[in-house]
Measured scan of single mutants.
Amino acid sequence: MQIFVKTLTGKTITLEVEPSDTIENVKAKIQDKEGIPPDQQRLIFNGKQLEDGRTLSDYNIQKDSTLHLVLR
C-alpha cells in the first residue's frame, strides 16, 4: 500500500509499505529515499509519536495515510 510522509519543509515522500511493516522498517525506507538516519527521525500520526517496535496496523495506518516526519 502507499503512504505519504510529510516533512517540515513541506516536501511529501511517497512510500510503498505493508500494514505489517514496523515503524523501524518505515524509517529505513525514508533513509533509503532521503538519506536521513533513522535515529534522527520521529514519525507522528494523528498527533501520536510512533514507536519503532510497533507496526503500521497497530496504529491503524491505512493506505494513503499521511505521517509527519520531525527531525531531532
Rank of each mutant, 00 (worst) to 15 (best):
I3K: 00
F4V: 07
F4E: 15
F4M: 11
F4H: 03
V5G: 01
L8A: 03
T9I: 05
T9D: 10
T9V: 05
G10S: 07
G10I: 03
K11D: 03
T12H: 13
T14H: 04
T14W: 10
T14M: 12
E18L: 04
E18A: 10
E18N: 15
P19N: 10
P19M: 12
P19L: 13
S20G: 04
D21R: 09
D21S: 08
D21N: 15
T22R: 11
N25H: 02
V26P: 00
V26D: 00
V26H: 00
K27N: 02
A28D: 13
A28Q: 08
A28W: 10
I30K: 00
D32L: 11
K33P: 04
E34R: 11
G35Q: 08
G35Y: 02
P38I: 13
D39S: 15
D39G: 04
D39A: 13
D39K: 13
Q40K: 08
Q40E: 06
Q40G: 05
Q40V: 10
Q41V: 13
R42M: 11
R42F: 10
L43K: 00
L43G: 00
I44A: 15
F45I: 13
G47K: 12
Q49H: 12
E51N: 09
D52I: 09
G53R: 08
R54S: 13
T55H: 12
T55L: 04
T55F: 11
L56R: 00
L56F: 13
S57V: 03
S57Y: 06
S57L: 10
D58N: 08
D58L: 04
Y59A: 07
N60G: 12
N60K: 04
N60Y: 08
I61K: 00
I61E: 00
Q62T: 04
Q62E: 04
Q62M: 10
K63D: 08
L67F: 03
L67N: 01
L67P: 01
L67G: 01
H68T: 03
H68Y: 05
L69K: 00
L69S: 01
L69I: 07
L69M: 05
V70A: 10
V70Q: 06
L71H: 05
L71M: 05
L71A: 04
R72F: 04
